[in-house]
């Protein structure tokens, strides 16, 4: 198991070096978006509205944090089940999204998208909300505040511990 330090925003070369099973320490800005945020973004794309986020070469972390305690940067923030986003991922890849982060296996159709858009899927520690929180150094609410834990946030992370689940060559940590 090799460990790779990865910085955002991403460049193609750093992505193509990721192999299923590698450990990644991710640093830099990333977005947080899950079910309802995806649905709203896709609706805006359909209506040709300007999106609240520019996803080109960006990372989306599927998560819904607990409320931020006074003195903390963000609440507990482990990953949510990625499979729920399988059928609503492609419109975001078309916007230039390059890495998705969540937990658990995804559909075969999604694996094809990983190859097609050269957009690896990384796994975070499911059930590890407190340890993931430790790697967040800044957070900002970006859009859809009314969605509560499903709003879009921009985080700045430092050495966020992740594993390459699906690489762009078809490699799969779960197989």
């Amino acid at each position: 198991m090799q460990t790779i330090e990865l910085n955002t925003p991403l460049i193609e070369k750093s992505i193509s070096g990721l192999k299923a099973g590698d450990k990644v320490l991710l640093s830099g800005p990333i977005f947080v978006a899950r079910d309802q945020a995806h649905i709203r973004l896709i609706d805006m794309i359909k209506k040709e509205l300007e999106l609240p986020v520019d996803l080109k070469n960006q990372v989306v972390y599927y998560a819904g944090p607990s409320p931020t305690k006074p003195g903390e940067v963000i609440g507990s923030i482990g990953p949510t089940t990625s499979a729920r986003m399988d059928t609503i991922s492609e419109p975001l890849f078309k916007q230039g999204l390059k890495i998705t982060i969540g937990k658990g296996v995804r559909s075969d159709a999604f694996k094809e998208l990983v190859k097609k858009y050269k957009a690896p899927y990384l796994a975070a520690m499911g059930g590890g909300g407190a340890v993931m929180q430790e790697s967040v150094v800044e957070s900002e609410l970006i859009a859809f505040e009314d969605l509560g834990p499903e709003a879009i946030y921009r985080l700045t992370v430092k050495n966020m511990p992740l594993y390459v689940a699906y690489d762009i060559f078809g490699g799969d940590i779960y197989n």
Partner: peptide, 28 residues
């Protein structure tokens, strides 16, 4: 090694949750 790495993260997660009094998993 990967599962042992996960175990380390798991133990650390529980320790942080207890020490900082934050949810061990955000999905309460």
């Amino acid at each position: 090694p990967r599962v042992q790495d996960i175990y380390k993260l798991f133990k650390k997660n529980i320790q942080i949750a207890g020490k900082k009094q934050v949810p061990a998993c955000q999905d309460t």
